[in-house]
Computed example of a mutant assay.
Amino acid sequence: MAEVKIPAIARTEFGKGAARRARRAGQVPAVLYGHGADPVHVSLPGHETLLALRVANALLAISIDGAAPQLALPKQVQRNPVKGSIEHVDLLIVKRGEKVSVEVPLVVLGADDRPDRIVVMDQQTITLEAEATHIPAAVEIDVTSLEIGDSIAAKDLNLPEGAVFPGEPDDLILSIAAAKTQAQIDAELDASVAEAGDGESAPAEAAADGE
């Protein structure tokens, strides 16, 4: 994964008021920590940071006040629930050659080629240990040749070179199930409506008996 260069400014003001002022100025408050160093509070350019963090596990080269860049990974990103803008970022300092534990998205290929079956995902991401400078953007799973009842476990994944799954090899990733026919969907809907109708009539009958 390519490094994204981000210029940063050291922050000397802290608290909610200072954070709001930084956001109004188009900056994102952030903290840089790791490798035994004291946490460093910085401000990042809002637009550049938003673009960089559209990629999972983006590797950032943070240059504070023009100093030599430090490599860092976003560990926690706080977003505005309405606007989607980034409000705060926790950045973990990493070194070249160092292995880190990251959550990598799982991407399914070929799921739309067989309309008679569906892919049941047991998890949407997978934890991998990989070199900080070689973190895969995603792990792809091709289900084109799978039949109903087949499944994929962690040991079946084609992991990028250097990446290791630290969990159990038999951990379930996904399975293939038969897609419901329209007749099955209609029957389940009718049963649900009938059950709801029975539930509504019972209190009325009880009230009538009480009279």
Rank of each mutant, 00 (worst) to 15 (best):
A2F: 09
I6D: 06
I9M: 11
R11H: 09
K16H: 12
K16Q: 15
A18H: 10
R21C: 08
R23S: 04
G26S: 03
V28G: 05
A30H: 04
L32Q: 04
Y33A: 01
H35V: 12
G36K: 06
D38A: 14
V40S: 06
H41Q: 08
P45F: 05
E48I: 08
L53T: 01
L53P: 00
R54G: 07
N57G: 00
I62R: 12
S63V: 12
A68M: 14
A72P: 08
Q76I: 01
V82L: 15
K83F: 11
K83D: 06
I86R: 00
E87V: 09
L91G: 03
K95E: 13
G97P: 13
V102H: 00
V102D: 01
E103F: 08
L106V: 14
L106F: 12
G110A: 11
R114Q: 10
R114G: 01
D116W: 01
D116L: 02
T125E: 05
I126N: 14
E131W: 02
T133W: 06
H134Y: 05
P136I: 06
D142P: 12
V143C: 07
V143P: 10
V143T: 07
E147G: 00
G149L: 00
D150T: 13
S151T: 08
L159M: 04
L159V: 02
P160I: 07
F165A: 04
F165Y: 12
P166F: 09
D170Q: 11
D171N: 15
D171H: 15
L172K: 14
L172V: 13
L174N: 11
I176A: 02
I176N: 00
A178R: 03
A178T: 03
V193E: 02
G199H: 12
G210P: 02
E211I: 14
